[in-house]
Design a protein around this nucleic acid. Structure first.
Lengths: 198, 198
DNA sequence: GTCTATAGGCTGATAGAC
DNA sequence: GTCTATCAGCCTATAGAC
């Protein structure tokens, strides 16, 4: 099932779907960039959508090595980890002139009538991301009010990341991203002060 | 420049772009649903993208009559207005089985290399929405800390709306939308209590 | 598993009569 | 301004030799 060619196809598609989206990326785009021929691709994948499924499975299975390990390198404090994660997306926006946002969020809003497998995989990817943030909040639970809904706050942080990227890409201005993160930071500070008073 | 046929094309495209997105909506889709013939469409619009431009201009010019007046009917309190706006999107999600999210946000993330006119219009639409929310915050300014960055908070609320829709659509579950709004509500409450103490 | 060639369908857009 | 007919190009996917 696995092979070097199959992997090259997936890696190439990951990148193209991230920048151009799913629909705007043609099979030819994947073939020409990966130097793979049509017959090989269709040997490994029944169709284009199956490439997308493989891409989403890869994101899901590699969230640690592909995202978290890198973003959290040298960061120990759990709250700092959350903002380091956001800073990673910020950097992608800046270094690619707002071309690379969130690969999952982009696909989630682009594909309007997703196949059940695709929708489920998008959701799994979101949930994994939320899990990671929630684990940080649990690690820092002594600093927050005891009745804090940590799951809801973790989802909220994903929401802010996605919405901030959407606005920054559209405005082509990182300032709106930063202001969003500032408001989140203020919210987290308020929660922590609330906990200190109690 | 204006005509009944032109308007029918725009209204049809508004709806189709909202549900299916821009790329997945073909000119044929617009023609068959609007009962307009190819020659008429190309008489009014040089190409498909010009239909999109007209759609975005219409959203921009009709934010009051098309969105705010309806959402704020019978709502006077400025903070209630903000949550009434969010509730409007919630209702759209629920009554359309998560098909209708935010028409602007969907297009903003779908179109990866937007024509300058398109990008500018998407941005204008976002800014108009933020303006509306900011005006609510200004109206309620006595209830918030004096140094509150109202523009940033208004952008933050747009961010939450967009991110909450993205997650709710993907999970096909309104609960995640509601939890996001709850966290926002909690943040607004914390700000107001902060102001009361000062 | 790899490579070339091409089928078959859909798309945006156009021509030209009325 | 409206309508019909149609083009040319791109797209996904397949056939079949190697």
């Amino acid at each position: 099932m696995n092979s070097a060619t199959r992997d090259i196809i997936i890696r190439t598609a990951m990148d193209l779907f991230w920048v151009k989206g799913y629909q705007s990326t043609s099979i030819s785009d994947i073939l020409s960039r990966s130097q793979v021929h049509s017959g090989s691709l269709y040997h490994f994948f029944p169709g284009k959508q199956d490439v997308l499924v493989a891409v989403l499975e890869t994101y899901r299975d590699e969230i640690d090595v592909g995202l978290l390990d890198h973003a959290w390198q040298g960061v120990d404090d759990p709250i700092d980890k959350i903002f380091a994660l956001l800073a990673g997306y910020r950097m992608h926006l800046l270094t690619t002139d707002f071309q690379y946002g969130c690969p999952i969020g982009g696909l989630a809003l682009e594909i309007h009538e997703p196949d059940p497998r695709v929708r489920e995989l998008l959701d799994q990817n979101f949930r994994n991301w939320v899990d990671a943030v929630e684990s940080c909040l649990i690690e820092a639970k002594d600093r927050f009010p005891g009745d804090l809904d940590r799951r809801a706050l973790a989802e909220f942080i994903l929401t802010i990341m996605e919405g901030a990227i959407m606005q920054a890409k559209t405005a082509r201005d990182i300032a709106v991203f930063d202001r969003n993160v500032s408001v989140l930071r203020n919210h987290m500070d308020l929660l922590q002060r609330q906990a200190e008073r109690a």
